[in-house]
Design a protein around this nucleic acid. Sequence first.
DNA 1: CAAAGATACTTGACTAGTCAAATAATAACC
DNA 2: GGTTATTATTTGACTAGTCAAGTATCTTTG
Lengths: 183, 183
Amino acid sequence: MMVDRDTPASSHPAPNGNTASRKRSVLQEEIQQNRPFKSKGQEATLALFRTADILRRKTSEVFSDSGITHQQYNVLRILRGAGDDGLPTLSIADRMIEQTPGITRLIDRLVAKELVIRERVPNDRRRVQCFISESGLELLASLDEPVDGNDDRVMGMLNEDEKTHLVELLDKIRLGLRELEPK
Amino acid sequence: MMVDRDTPASSHPAPNGNTASRKRSVLQEEIQQNRPFKSKGQEATLALFRTADILRRKTSEVFSDSGITHQQYNVLRILRGAGDDGLPTLSIADRMIEQTPGITRLIDRLVAKELVIRERVPNDRRRVQCFISESGLELLASLDEPVDGNDDRVMGMLNEDEKTHLVELLDKIRLGLRELEPK
DNA sequence: CAAAGATACTTGACTAGTCAAATAATAACC
DNA sequence: GGTTATTATTTGACTAGTCAAGTATCTTTG
């Protein structure tokens, strides 16, 4: 009834030339799986998802004491960068590292914490301009050092060349995905 | 009032030797930012988050027609791999690519869709053993080809050596993070 | 064997992500 | 100058992630 594909006991040679007897990869150990990956592409995507997840979790520790989340921090950073002019709601979404359709509600929470100020634009009343508040600036200032330190710490196991190469590979993936059937 | 750090107009030389006049990186273009990154470590973490986000979004397209999410798909894969023995709830969580504290409710939804079957273990009534159903197996079977194709397609812009190197770099990050103050 | 501790979940109360539909204001066109 | 289209944002209804606090059910230990 159960097909042997996926089963830990499978001993079929894999398309990528691995066999079940080959030493398991780091990722396979982590997710307790003996079946070899179907392709390097599969291994790469899974490794990317897992690494990003662990890194996000580690990085969140820096913010959690301040009572804000990673996404809320990103909004504050963007608004600090925008300066006194502020930014309209959807322009903030455009600049987020991770796409954020729920930007309105995210900012709602920052307004509730009085870290962000919002106001309708008189010239164009469709738009809502957002600004970082004084206490928002103070909170960010207190986080600058911990955040910078964390970025270097979590990448500390790679030397500068490796970091550069990683960035190049990731850039290449994103550029390649843009071409892929924009649908 | 506004510090010039973070402002798009900043012209300070960056710690990594870049200057504001240097050509913007791919990532900087994407998030519309002129200020150079504070370090390679910062650029690498942001590139990793952004790439994983875009990749997750692209990959979700494969599942959305079937009415399941990426995480639900992962649970089904794990249960198919477990075979007729099934797996207890928390063992599934251990094997997920991304950590999933809400595993109970995730499986609730799969049970509601009749893709998973759950039952208390008689020997140890604390445990709940989970199994994939026949229709779960059928659904997975119909997704095998699209999923495998997607994994290769989204990594198609990298050659085998590049994929291997990417996996190595990501493995190195995760191994390094394990050491980092287990706290 | 009873009390204390450890396991394996489960639930509650949030924050977020996702997609579709609604609103509201401005722009473009005839 | 009154539609029609477009833009900017909001809302609703889910799914999911997060953390803390339960609730059974074993297991261990005095």
